[in-house]
Design a protein around this nucleic acid. Structure first.
Lengths: 244, 244
DNA sequence: CTTTCTAAGCTTGTATGCAAGACTTGTCGC
DNA sequence: GCGACAAGTCTTGCATACAAGCTTAGAAAG
């Protein structure tokens, strides 16, 4: 397993270290997170790791398979649709209820869009994944409602896991333009339009998923061997083992 | 402390037993939930209680005060407003996005309204509190989105804690009528109207709160001594101790 | 060569023990 | 009478130990 977090993250807590690893797509769905393994990484006992896992399970980020271990969730197609539906409901609701965009808020959004642009230019895909999710959290932060921010943060984490599972290619530019359009509408003060654009944007991303693709049980091995990812052409009848 | 749950709840888990106690207003905000105390109630070790508490803390239902104990949250006025704002966003978003009311769904809602009516007639306040919160969960269930259902369930739990802290009197009939109006709009197929009514309903309930009232640290003692509840007339400058 | 059964190893599940800190209460000094 | 202080008690924080079950590797039989 790759190092799931820098050492300094001991301060911020095990939970956030793992979530941060997911948000930046360093941790893949289905990754096993053994208690003793994580415990030694953070130089603590299994007890604290377990407590962190319990919290993460509550947040829908990891799941436990009894006596087998903890795993980063691999959302099913159904769950994926629910996550997107929930995000549509919440984000659209947020924007619709917004009344004004403060100059401070506008600056933050512009700064974020600039970061997106820079990451696209640099081709830093990991950073890009993180930023694309963060955009929606930034919007929630404008409302000042920390409850909704936390909810959206967890949904974003799940979204990233979903895209790692079902997204064949990542149209970063398309998403970026979507974000720009939303911000533009907000600057016009037309929050209903922003809400509609947000729904469209999420629809667009969801449509880009291939939800028929079964989660690939060999993904991590494939990745370790530097093989190309599973092609969308042969999704369902891929052989379990390679025949010689 | 009153028995916070029937013995049979051992099966459903400690978490849900406590949440159920809150949803039915048997557990007041600020209640201390000592680890050993709860552990002996459920005949388990502190370990499992601790795990349950961790999950409940993540859900915003309990808080830990270091080396002092676990307490059912006492939402501040700010948090209270955030909870209501979040509920407005989610519930309105849900209704707005709904497209049809199935006959099954209609039956469920009617059954629920009938239960509310019966509880009002019977004057069963505890049951009523539970039902009033459940109504909104029923609506979320119609969407089939279990993620949103779980989110709303936790928000409802917090709402009940809020009303126990800040609601001087409980206008059950008013809330019931609000629910009836929402269902009526849904039956007409006018989900935008239902959404608007839902926002109005939540506004109405929130307006009925007295958010200036400070949480009463002596509430449980007062209750134990059968003294009358703190009057709203002298909220802030009430003496810490009675002067002889 | 294939299949089946068994046993060992590794993983989580749960309890318990000890340590550190906070609050209470009793006592002493003023 | 009143305030400060200190010991004791009670609480959580954390680590460790043991039990139970899943997985897998290896041996044996067909």
């Amino acid at each position: 397993m790759q190092d799931l977090s820098p050492q300094q993250n001991d301060q911020t807590g095990i939970d956030e270290a793992i979530v941060s690893g997911i948000l930046s797509a360093r941790i893949r769905p289905g990754t096993r997170l053994g208690e003793s393994e994580v415990a030694s990484l953070f130089s603590v006992s299994r007890t604290r790791v377990r407590e962190a896992m319990m919290r993460l399970e509550q947040r829908g980020i990891v799941k436990v398979s009894p006596r087998r271990g903890w795993f980063v969730v691999e959302p099913s197609a159904e769950e994926a649709m629910m996550v997107y539906a929930a995000r549509r409901v919440i984000e659209a609701g947020l924007l619709r209820g917004m009344e004004e965009l403060t100059t401070n808020g506008r600056d933050r959004l512009h700064a974020h869009l600039a970061e997106e642009k820079a990451a696209i230019a640099a081709g830093d895909r990991q950073r890009l994944t993180c930023l694309m999710g963060d955009f929606h959290i930034r919007i929630a932060e404008l409302s000042g409602n920390t409850i909704l921010v936390e909810i959206l943060r967890d949904l974003t984490a799940r979204t990233i896991l979903i895209s790692l599972l079902y997204q064949s290619e990542f149209h970063a530019m398309q998403s970026h333009l979507g974000h720009c359009r939303i911000v533009a509408a907000m600057e016009e003060g037309d929050f209903l339009k922003a809400a509609a654009l947000s729904v469209d944007h999420l629809d667009e991303v969801e449509t880009g998923l291939d939800l028929t693709r079964r989660p690939d049980p060999l993904a991590d091995l494939r990745h370790s061997l530097s093989l190309p990812p599973q092609t969308a052409a042969a999704p369902s009848n891929a052989p379990r083992k390679a025949k010689p």
